[in-house]
Amino acid sequence: MMHMGGCTGLSKRKFNTFKDVPNKNLIEGGTPTCPGCGGELGLKLALKVMGKDTVVVNASGCMTLLTNWPTTPMKVSLIHNAIENASSTATGIVHALKALNRKMNVLCYGGDGATYDIGFQSLSGAAARGDDFVYVCYNNSCYGNTGNQWSTATPLYARTTTTPIGKKHRGNPLSRKDMAKIMGAHGVYSATACTAFPLDYMRKVEKAKKFKGLGFIDLLVNCPTNWGFEARNGIEIVKKAVLTGIWPLYEVEGGRLKINYDPGPGKFLPVEEFLKSQDRFKHLTKKEIKEIQKAVDKEWELYRAGQYWKTDEY
């Protein structure tokens, strides 16, 4: 059983224990988010790492509604532009801060729809240009704010409102895109993370912040509303995503991929542990579950054989 405080494979740095989590909150209460929202948790933790001299660039999505005239829960600067241009806006801010000789950190916070799909161009451009900011994608594997529509981050066979269960079609027929590897191919710091492992996530945000250029984090967040589970089980459920091998935790640095957690061949929990707890997978047949298990096993075979990248572990 893995303690959520640490993962094997990470070197020691700040945020090693829960005692190291800063006490100050830079986003306060009174938010309109769903109870148990993983997206808000991700923003709260990222801001503890980025600090108070930060500009948050928000891409349209659930987090946009945190601020609704005339109230905001923010204690740091924030700008909202549109859904697809958070990275380009951040580029402009970074250059202007340089022109004005001001030192501030820039954090982009956008959902998987805004990052994987519509915002891909501006994100790729910013990574290729070497613009120095952190981009955290809070990944609830769908377009959450509009009510659970399919995005390229949605996993195989998941039910969404645009890939519903009917007589002719049964859920999402496509596998999800692996954004962290795509961003890693740009030569920037790129990592996956999970709200169930907050210290690991915070260490990665710190690394992304220190990296001279874009730092990209793909954060799997618990979304009780769209995935269909009780809010209190959120952290346990996304923890299972890591423990079943469905959501690999890894970092890409300097073109090398480093796996953060691998218990060994045959030691991952069966994928059913993750799938059975959510309404969006309630319709799965035994055959479909077997297919998902096979895909996960195959992926880990490739990781262990060093086929995905030049890996450090294997």
């Binding site: 306060e28 009174g30 938010t31 109870p35 109230t71 905001t72 829960p73 923010m74």
Partner: peptide, 18 residues
Amino acid sequence: VPVMPANASARKNKTGTW
């Protein structure tokens, strides 16, 4: 101008009633 200070004014939304 639609700009507001980042002063956690949302504290007046008493979400505890949820």
